[in-house]
Design a protein around this nucleic acid. Structure first.
Length: 641
RNA sequence: GCCGACGUAGCUCAGCUGGUAGAGCACAUCUCUCGUAAAGAUGGGGUCCCCGGUUCGAGUCCGGGCGUCGGCUCCA
């Protein structure tokens, strides 16, 4: 028979040939290096047979993700091997490869608690299994036999998995993989032997629900990662270190931006420098909203529970809201701004001539996020959304949605974020007619396709009241975040009986578009801190220039310099402590001050400043006015170079 | 909320099997007046997260709570 190779050439191989046979036919070296095969796009074991006419690609260490997937899957099995040996009576469940490594979920016997202190012992045992290079042997077993086997071993989770396979997919046989003493129910594929794992490390231990279901057994998940070379592992650990170095919680403390108190979990306290950052972002937000036809509003945070009953939040979201009694009335803190904006909308009679009406608000909402989910600025209970609601006619929806997307792109562009779009459609639990949803989804699709935008489809992931487009972006170290969302809403206008008078002099229902682009100021700033590693562009930097007098006699001149620069609109501080210049520079660098201006006898005499750029070193002396020009020009352009 | 770990000075952390708490940095005072990443000396500073228990005695052991961290679930 014949197989097709990636370079389009054909290769004749005997009938019934396996991937290994194909590799061998190409070259003995390739066969030795092979980890698996990709047949017509499907990843398989190296020893799996190939079909006549199939496209066959040999996966080696150079194959990137495929190779990593295989050895990480292998490594998960090796982990389970070591754990089952070291902890008799442990039950195994599943152990897949994931984005940066793999995990395996275990159910340890009563009384056994695993912690990362146990990793060394487990890793040692894993190394032994890798060193002896145990082959992964695949076998097919009739379902009945497999069930009997795992029942006898007390492996309840495996039994459940097989039972589900029988029920959902009507399988007759299941595949098992054995490596050394360990046999696992597994679909595969695997690399030929454990020895192909060239570098691995267990990274953390955590709880995880069996099958992701919070009502079921909590298992112990051990995370690890594996690579094809020690260098790759080292590079990965270096990346993790980089992420830790950029952690906004650490930088927030070091740069004096914000803090938290045990007395108000999930609610940041903004210190003067952090507030400065916040204000700059607010200025950007306000200017852009004004340019794009939004009217800024400001609404209360506390409302009678009746409002929440009407908006539906009481029924769906009560558990996550904060309530208080006020003179016998139940009042609730708003978890969203939309009901507030509907109040303004419906405070007057509206004409079709008024639409679209666009209300923007830096809306303060409170959501009782579960305690275990709080995470610095990225997951808070006190949330300031860059919110807006657009009330428009059905016909205006596509254009308004496009305007929202353009707005989002413009904001992200300021920070150099690359956006990615997802369209989410009607979920199972939804309100409104089939026809309405079809129209709404079509409107969103049209908004996307008119702009020629690529997007991913998320069927069934929309909000209960309407479909949405989510805006995701990637930061400077490759992490993806969901920031913005543009949602169509046909429900809230109905609930609040919003109307406008049409050209036909009849009452019509407007459509509401909810949109947030940064998501929340808190989260967005957290992401910015990590994106810039605390080294903000000049326009955002809380302190733009530090003036460093060399000796006490230069303080007057330093104050004069600071005064002139402030008059030019720059944020400047003078370090007038009786410390050495070396010390002041060191601390200025650690505080990531964009500019440091050293002034001594020479500068005072010439009316100059010696400019030092953060990370850029000494740039030489400039007249004060020249530096002011340079810095104000730089700060006035928000867009990244 | 669930699983696990952790909570000691402003920060980073040490404190063995229970015997009245320590370092570096930071801070204060004094001396030094300094040219591109840390001058020197002296000193102050603790409800060892909170509540309860065991004990002659608890930072240390036990129980409960709160918070933080890593995950899981959740994010309408």
């Amino acid at each position: 028979m014949t197989v097709l190779l990636p370079d389009e050439s054909r290769l004749d191989v005997p009938d019934g040939a396996t991937g290994r046979d194909v590799a061998r036919a190409i070259g003995e070296g390739l066969a030795r290096a092979a980890l698996g095969i990709r047949v017509d796009g499907e990843l398989r074991d190296l020893d799996a047979p190939v079909e006549n006419g199939a496209k066959v690609e040999i996966v080696t260490a150079k194959s990137g993700d495929d190779a990593l997937w295989l050895i990480r899957h292998d490594c998960a099995h090796v982990l389970a091997t070591a754990v089952t040996e070291l902890y008799p009576g442990v039950k195994v469940s599943i152990g897949p490869p994931v984005a940066d490594g793999f995990y395996y979920d275990f159910d340890f016997p009563e009384g056994v608690k695993l912690s990362d202190a146990d990793f060394e012992r487990i890793e040692q045992r894993m190394r032994e299994h890798i060193k002896v290079d145990e082959p992964f042997e695949r076998s097919e077993l009739p379902v009945a036999e497999a069930l009997e086997r795992f029942r006898a071993e007390g492996q309840d989770y495996k039994v459940e998995l097989i039972e589900d396979l029988v029920r959902d997919q009507r399988v007759k046989t299941v595949s098992l993989y054995r490596n050394g003493p360990f046999t696992d129910l597994c679909r595969g594929p695997h690399a030929p032997t454990t020895g192909r794992i060239k570098a691995f490390k267990l990274t953390s231990v955590a709880g995880a629900y069996w099958r992701g279901d919070a009502s079921r057994q909590m298992l112990t998940r051990v995370y690890g990662t594996a690579f094809l070379s020690k260098d790759d592992l080292a590079a990965h650990l270096e990346r993790l270190e980089e992420a830790r170095r950029r952690d906004h919680r650490k930088l927030g403390r070091e740069l004096d931006l914000f803090m938290f108190s045990e007395l108000s979990p999930g609610a940041p306290f903004w210190k003067p420098k952090g507030q400065q950052l916040w204000n700059e972002l607010t200025d950007l937000w306000r200017a852009e909203n004004a340019d794009r036809g939004y009217s800024e509003v400001h609404t209360p945070i506390l409302y009678d529970a009746d409002l929440w009953k009407r908006s539906g939040h009481w029924h769906v979201y009560r558990e996550n809201m904060y309530f208080t009694e006020v003179e016998g009335r139940t009042m609730g803190l708003k978890p969203m701004n939309c009901p507030a904006h509907t109040q303004i909308y419906s405070s007057e009679r509206r004409s079709y001539r008024d639409l679209p009406i666009r209300y923007s608000e830096a809306g303060l909402v409170h959501r009782h996020e579960p305690s275990g989910t709080l995470h610095g600025l990225l997951r808070v209970r006190h949330i300031t959304q860059d919110d807006a609601h657009i009330f428009c006619t059905e016909d205006q929806v596509p254009e308004e949605v496009q305007r929202c997307l353009d707005f989002g792109f413009a904001i992200y562009d300021v920070f150099g974020f690359e956006p990615r779009l997802e369209l989410s459609t009607r979920p199972e639990k939804s309100v409104g007619s089939e026809e309405m949803w079809d129209r709404a989804e079509a409107a969103l699709e049209r908004a996307l396709s008119d702009r020629g935008l690529d997007y991913e489809l998320n069927p069934g992931d929309g909000a209960f009241y309407g479909p949405k487009i989510d805006l995701h972006m990637t930061d400077s170290i490759g992490r993806s975040w969901q920031l913005g969302t543009v949602q169509l809403d046909y429900y809230m206008p109905e609930q609040f009986e919003l109307t406008y008078t049409g050209a036909d002099n009849a009452e019509h229902r407007p459509v509401m578009i909810h949109r947030a682009l940064m998501g929340s100021f808190e989260r967005f700033i957290g992401i910015l801190i990590e994106h810039y590693a605390g080294e903000f562009p000049l326009w955002l930097a809380p302190v733009q220039a530090l003036v460093l007098p060399i000796a006490d006699r230069h303080v007057d001149y330093a104050d004069r310099v600071a005064g002139e620069l402030r008059a030019a609109g720059l944020r400047v501080e003078v370090d007038d402590r009786a410390e050495s210049v070396g010390r002041k520079i060191r601390e200025g660098e650690l505080a990531k001050a964009p500019y440091m201006l050293v002034v001594g006898d020479q500068e005072a005499e010439d009316g100059t400043v010696s400019v030092r750029r953060h990370r850029g070193g000494d740039l030489g002396a400039l007249p004060i006015a020249d530096f002011a020009d340079r810095a104000t020009t730089e700060a006035s352009s928000r867009r990244q170079a």
